[in-house]
């Protein structure tokens, strides 16, 4: 009995604060959030439960449905864009290029900046004025003779949200590049040698030997960027502001509901977001868990 306490006691003591905190503030509060979403909570005052009424309200609300559509489009563009640039940059740099350090440092630097700070400059860049009063990117496009590309950017009803994906891609492509670079460099040199000895061309070697090795990295990148993207909030607040219609996403909707006192619906939005993220994360965590057990 005593030896059992001796071997179990200390580790439990070390890890207990974390388990208690996360138990309460992650799992407990998720439970409390789901509960709140089933009540008529207004600014903390609850008179009773209302079943799924809040969810029904949300999905009958055109703005909320539009915000879901927006975050879906945003996520597709964000994931595809960062994967494309991240992979391309890593590929160009993986064999070591002259000045590699400089390219890497510059490509990655936006990651160190907050969305709020980069939002300041992107709001200026994505100014929707055209013609004489055009500034920002519209002006630049005009200056380089691509004036026909001038756009409304994030003020466009249908596609506006994709303009918000531009700063997001700018900010995180470098991160995906770093992931892919680590992936490229983890591939043993012998694999390349073997392919060359077998007479493969450079391209064939990449296509059939190197790229398939990188699919776990790509999956990680999709998961990380994807879950980040679904909770987008800061960037939209900084570029377009909280009330702009064309850039509504669940994150901003939740904030608006919170500030207007409809806390039950705000909690319902939080729960919807959690479910969407869980669809992405849970299979990933389960596979990580299985891999851990095999160790």
């Amino acid at each position: 009995m005593f030896t059992r306490i001796r071997s179990w006691g200390p580790p439990v003591l070390l890890i207990a604060p974390t388990l208690i905190l996360l138990g309460i503030f992650v799992y407990g509060l998720i439970g409390a959030g789901v509960w709140t979403s089933l009540t008529d909570n207004v600014r903390g005052q609850t008179t009773g439960t209302v079943g799924l009424q809040n969810y029904e309200n949300l999905f009958n609300d055109d703005t909320f449905v539009y915000s879901l559509r927006n975050v879906g489009m945003y996520t597709l563009a964000f994931v595809a864009g960062t994967l494309f640039f991240g992979f391309l940059w890593a590929w160009m740099l993986e064999r070591g290029a002259r000045g590699e350090g400089i390219f890497r440092t510059v490509y990655l630097f936006p990651m160190a900046v907050s969305f709020v700070a980069s939002g300041v400059v992107w709001r200026w860049l994505l100014n929707s004025n055209t013609g004489e009063s055009a500034s920002g990117l519209n002006r630049l496009l005009d200056m380089v003779g691509l004036g026909f590309l001038q756009g409304q950017w994030w003020t466009h009803e249908g596609w506006g949200i994709l303009a918000i994906a531009m700063p997001a891609i700018w900010q995180l492509s470098g991160y995906v590049m770093a992931l892919f670079l680590a992936g490229f460099r983890g591939i043993p040199e012998e694999l390349r040698e073997a392919a060359r000895v077998d007479g493969a061309t450079e391209w064939q070697m990449y296509r059939h030997v190197i790229f398939p090795q990188l699919s776990p990295v790509a999956l990680s990148a999709v998961i990380i960027i994807g879950h980040m993207s679904l909770k987008v909030f800061d960037l939209i607040m900084a570029v377009a502001g909280q009330t702009n219609h064309t850039t509504q996403v669940p994150g901003t909707q939740m904030w608006l509901k919170y500030t207007s006192g409809e806390w039950a619906e705000a909690a319902a939005i939080g729960t919807v977001l959690l479910l969407v993220v869980a669809v992405l994360i849970v299979p990933y965590l389960i596979s990580t868990y299985r891999a851990e057990r095999r160790r």
Partner: peptide, 28 residues
């Protein structure tokens, strides 16, 4: 210990949650 990996996975999950899901109870 038995269940160590499960504990670890449960801790990791906290990294991915959208904080909006816990925000209202946290405010309260």
């Amino acid at each position: 210990f038995r269940g160590a990996d499960l504990v670890f996975t449960l801790i990791l999950f906290g990294m991915f949650i959208p904080y909006q899901a816990v925000m209202i109870p946290l405010v309260e």
